[in-house]
């Protein structure tokens, strides 16, 4: 019966089952675990990481990787914070747009180096991770952005609710992220321009023969990744207010983790941003919940996170191999039963 369900949907269902299992597990071992505060806290921090991970997914789909996103988040949070301190009167929408544009600019640097010169993305973004961070350190001169220097609406945005249902609060930040993820999902699955990302990732040569401009698509993927990291940088500024030169450090690993746990193939060509959203939520859920579990100390978070990513990748690899083998057997069986029809396929 599982053969009827597309592999991507099956993956998503399994991921959701794991998510539910983890919630039940923590609900069983932690007193008063299931409450509105848990939802409010996790949804706000997922909003930031899910944005970055969605951008990362575009890049990974094209068989690349963007390790510079953490530095982009830090740079954008810092620069936008600095600009707001200089001109507090900037309209909010313009500020958000500015953050997206600065991020897209960083992404364009990565995209240009990777797509134009055909350099390996892991090296380019490893280098820009360091370069962008050093730009931040150089221009900040060690000074920090503080909440006091920001207009009141900036920290206010992180607290603002779109709707509340009893104790449950859905912050505007979360709504923005959900809209972005949904838009990315529709773009990737429904539009021709979106399918190109999959084509490049699953078979670059075939995609080129089909007339797809590989360089342009890869460039675009990095720009999208930078732009979403920029938007995340603005949210980061809004949520934390105090920004130092280490802001966003380590987000590259978390975002790659969310992408991989969310079922995007690290070799490109397959994946789903809804899965990435669930992956980001799962990672954050475990991260936040372990702190409250009395049996382990908060210092267990990283070890568990690393092993979780590994487990997700192993499960994914085994599952897709089994699916492939079963389908091949089914196809072979059909071919044997009806040689006249089966001959055309291999």
């Amino acid at each position: 019966m599982f053969d009827r369900i597309p592999a991507q949907t099956l993956r998503l269902l399994i991921l959701l089952a794991v998510f539910a299992g983890v919630v039940l597990f923590f609900a069983a071992v932690i007193d008063g675990y299931l409450n509105a505060r848990l939802f409010n806290r996790i949804s706000t921090s997922v909003a930031i990481i899910a944005l970055i991970a969605t951008g990362q997914a575009f890049v990974v789909l094209t068989r690349n990787i963007d390790l510079s996103v953490g530095s982009v988040v830090g740079c954008v949070a810092y620069f936008v914070g600095g600009l707001l301190a200089l001109w507090p009167g900037m309209p909010p929408l313009a500020v958000a747009l500015l953050a997206v544009l600065i991020g897209a600019g960083f992404g364009a640097v990565n995209g240009f180096l990777v797509a134009r010169f055909g350099l390996p993305s892991i090296i380019v973004t490893l280098a820009t991770l360091a370069i962008f961070r050093s730009i931040l350190v150089q221009s900040s001169d060690g000074a920090s952005i503080t909440t006091d220097s920001l207009p009141a609406w900036v920290p206010g945005f992180a607290q603002a609710n779109a709707f509340t249902l009893g104790e449950l609060q859905l912050r505007w930040m979360v709504v923005v992220t959900l809209v972005v993820v949904l838009a990315a999902h529709l773009f990737l699955t429904r539009l021709r321009a979106g399918r190109r990302f999959f084509a490049i990732g699953s078979n670059p040569d075939a995609a080129r023969f089909a007339g797809i401009d590989a360089a342009r698509t890869v460039f675009l993927a990095f720009v999208i990744s930078g732009a979403l990291a920029g938007l995340a940088g603005f949210m980061f500024l809004s949520r934390f207010g105090n920004i130092t030169v280490v802001a966003g450090l380590g987000f590259e690993l978390k975002s790659v983790g969310a992408v991989v746990v969310g079922g995007v193939n690290i070799f490109g060509g397959s994946g789903n941003v809804i899965g990435v959203l669930v992956g980001a939520a799962l990672i954050d859920l475990i991260d936040t919940s372990l702190v409250r579990w009395e049996l382990v100390s908060e210092f267990w978070r990283e070890a568990v996170l690393g092993l979780l990513i590994l487990a997700a990748v192993v499960a994914d690899a085994l599952l897709s191999r089994r699916l492939m083998a079963r389908r091949r057997r089914a196809a072979a069986g059909a071919a044997a039963a009806a040689p006249a029809i089966g001959e055309g396929r291999t």
């Binding site: 070799f267 210092f299 070890a303 192993v314």
Partner: peptide
């Protein structure tokens, strides 16, 4: 599995064990 993914995961996990 690709070593990039495996060692990315163990980068986090081994560091986590050090912190434990």
């Amino acid at each position: 599995l690709p070593s990039l993914v495996v060692t990315l995961a163990t980068l986090i996990a081994f560091r986590g064990m050090a912190r434990i």
